[in-house]
């Protein structure tokens, strides 16, 4: 626990001492804010057109759904931005230690590899959660002008926590495989995109394969959360994916100890 805390706070400090955390958070918040604004403007436009139409037709029409038209859209955009941002948060975690030779300090200290890995994982996850949390502001703004349904918003954010953990575990694994941070970023992009788009090929696969491919897709499982549903099969998917990658990371780092 003490070792975990030491690694965790070292990693957190290093995120905040360097401009990395601020730049990434800043760019992300700017982009997501900008997109949120556009989605809102679009919604506004629709409302106007919709109102005029309703008047022309002289009849009652069902109200426009704020959740469907703003929240879901916004989530759809954010998913993708995370895919671009998370590899940059994870790239340095092990690659930098290898490059600087500080991995020799960690590996020759009386500390278990799991503790190092978990300290790094949770530090990155904390930073991610902070940035994700900041975007909740947009929905507070939304609340001022309309009345969104908060249920799907909250489950959507829960989905982000699970998705983020999974992305980070993939990123850490890539970082453990190389001492080059650029290689780590590219590997992470590659793996994330693959699992992002994997259910596309389900359309051309046999029924069993299609099921498996669907199951492995990152977005499939996210959509349930964003509809307001917490399904244990989604939670289990994300958690087991995360555990698997973290387990592999530990093995990769430790492999040097058994490669005689």
């Amino acid at each position: 626990m003490r070792n975990f805390a030491a690694i965790y706070s070292k990693e957190m400090r290093s995120y905040f001492v360097s401009p990395v955390a601020y730049v990434i958070a800043g760019v992300f918040l700017f982009l997501s804010g900008y997109l949120f604004r556009n989605i809102l403007m679009q919604f506004n436009l629709w409302c106007l057109q919709f109102g005029q139409r309703a008047q022309q037709m002289g009849g009652q029409m069902p109200a426009l759904n704020l959740n469907e038209m703003v929240v879901t859209q916004f989530f759809g955009v954010m998913d993708f931005i995370w895919l671009l941002v998370i590899p940059m948060l994870t790239m340095r975690l092990f690659a930098e230690e290898k490059k600087n030779g500080t991995i020799e300090l960690l590996m020759t200290s009386p500390i278990r590899t799991v503790e190092v890995m978990l300290g790094k994982f949770f530090a990155c996850f904390s930073l991610y959660s902070i940035i994700v949390g900041l975007t909740l502001v947009y929905f507070v703004i939304l609340e001022a002008y309309g009345s969104p349904d908060w249920g799907p918003i909250f489950t959507g954010y829960m989905g982000y926590l699970f998705l983020g953990a999974t992305f980070i575990s993939v990123g850490i694994l890539a970082s453990a495989l190389t001492e080059n941070q650029i290689v780590a970023v590219l590997l992470t992009f590659g793996m994330l995109l693959l699992f992002w788009l994997i259910d596309w090929s389900a359309s051309f696969a046999g029924p069993t394969a299609a099921k498996i491919l669907h199951y492995l897709s990152f977005i499939e499982h996210l959509e349930d959360f964003q509809r307001g549903v917490i399904d244990s099969k989604d939670v289990i998917f994300y958690l087991s994916f995360t555990f698997f990658c973290l387990f592999l990371t530990t093995r990769v780092i430790e492999s040097r100890r058994w490669r005689r």
């Binding site: 070292k10 400090r13 600087n100 500080t102 991995i103 020799e104 300090l105």
Partner: peptide, 8 residues
């Protein structure tokens, strides 16, 4: 190579 963190 001394195993130091340059930002600490």
């Amino acid at each position: 190579q001394p195993p130091v963190y340059h930002d600490m």
